Each structure stands twice: as structure tokens, then as C-alpha cells.
Amino acid sequence: MSQSQIRPAVRDDDEALGELDRETWSPLHAVYPRPRPPYEPFFDSGHRPEEHLVAEIGDRLVGYVRIGRPTPLACNTHVRQIQGLAVRESARGHGVGRALLRAAALHARNQGARRLTLRVLGHNVPARRLYEAEGFAVEGVLPGEFLLEGEYVDDVLMGRSLLA
């Protein structure tokens, strides 16, 4: 498999990103129910193209990362938050997630951010390992924060500095 290319998302990616999001839905990382038709657009007023980077292999979209602001507060503008990361099953294990995380950190740094944070479900061990390998550390745990498929699952807060 050839190396992925990372680029900013554009409005025309809406349908492909929606399909990818539905394809990669899993109780391992999703706190919302499985998407059902009719499907909402991927982009909306709260999730704009400029908040996303996408990964492509050839001409196929294989992943995305959403980088947003954790709050609308002026005193928090130095922080960006990863608010979604998805990689197509066929592209997993080929560095796509790692490339998206590195691109997200650079994107956030270029916007003047000093910190990058995220939330991950406690039982999502593969994602937690990837985040730790990319410099994220656990900064807090909300025990049993979500009831998913009959099990209470921790919400793990992770973060890293973007200062060189």
C-alpha cells in the first residue's frame, strides 16, 4: 500500500467523509448511536471543512481528523482539540492515523495553539496506544462516564504540548 497524503478537507469531501464515518462507526470509540438513514451531511455549522484534514491513498479518501476548539472562550484559544479521528479498515496499520495526528499537531501549531487535547474511551486500547506513541499523556479520567452497550466506560482525557 502506498503512503497516504494529507490535505485540508474541502466541501466536496462531504459525501466521502460521511460514508467513511458510517463505515468506521464502532462502540469502541462512538458514544452516539449507529448512524441510520436518512444520513445527515458530514459538514454542518459546527463541523466545517476547514476543521478537518483528510488522508488519501491514490484518489481514495482513507481517513480524517477533526481539529476544533474545546470551548468558545477567549482564554482558551491557545488549545485545540482532536474531536474525531477515523481511518478506513483497509488502511489501518499503514501509518495513516499517525500521519493524521502529526498533521493535526502541525495544523494546530500553525494556528498558534500551544496545546492539543483529546478524549478517548477507556476501552479503546489501540487508539490510546497510538496517542501515547505520539506524545499524548493521560491528564484525567472520568470513571464510568458513558453507558455503552450495557457497560460503563471511562472517558480518558489526554493532551500534549505543541511547544518545540
Rank of each mutant, 00 (worst) to 15 (best):
G112L: 01
E50P: 05
S45V: 13
L28G: 02
A113N: 04
R160M: 15
A105W: 05
R36T: 05
P126T: 10
I57V: 15
L162M: 05
P41T: 14
D21E: 14
V65R: 07
R69M: 13
R34L: 05
Q3A: 13
R36G: 00
G144I: 00
P37D: 04
L130I: 08
P41I: 07
A86V: 05
E40K: 08
Q83M: 14
F42Y: 15
Y131D: 06
G144K: 03
Y39K: 04
E51W: 12
R66W: 06
P41G: 05
G95S: 12
G135L: 04
H29I: 03
E145D: 04
R48F: 06
G46P: 03
Y32W: 00
A108H: 01
L100R: 09
L148A: 01
Q83G: 12
S45Q: 14
P33T: 02
R102I: 07
E56M: 15
R102L: 15
H47G: 06
D155Y: 01
E139V: 07
H123F: 06
W25G: 03
G140M: 03
V54W: 05
S4M: 08
L53G: 11
T117F: 05
S161E: 13
P49K: 08
R119S: 13
Q3L: 11
A16M: 01
F42D: 02
L53F: 10
R88K: 13
N76S: 13
L157M: 11
S90Y: 02
D13S: 02
A30N: 12
G159R: 08
L101P: 03
I67C: 15
T117S: 13
R109A: 15
L106H: 12
E132R: 14
T71K: 09
R11W: 02
L17E: 02
V120C: 11
T71P: 00
L73D: 08
P41V: 06
L118W: 07
F146D: 00
E51M: 14
P8K: 01
G18P: 02
R128K: 14
R160Q: 14
V96E: 11
H78A: 06
H52R: 07
M1K: 08
D44C: 11
E50Y: 12
E89Y: 03
G18V: 03
L28N: 04
R22T: 12
F136V: 01
H52A: 11
H52K: 04
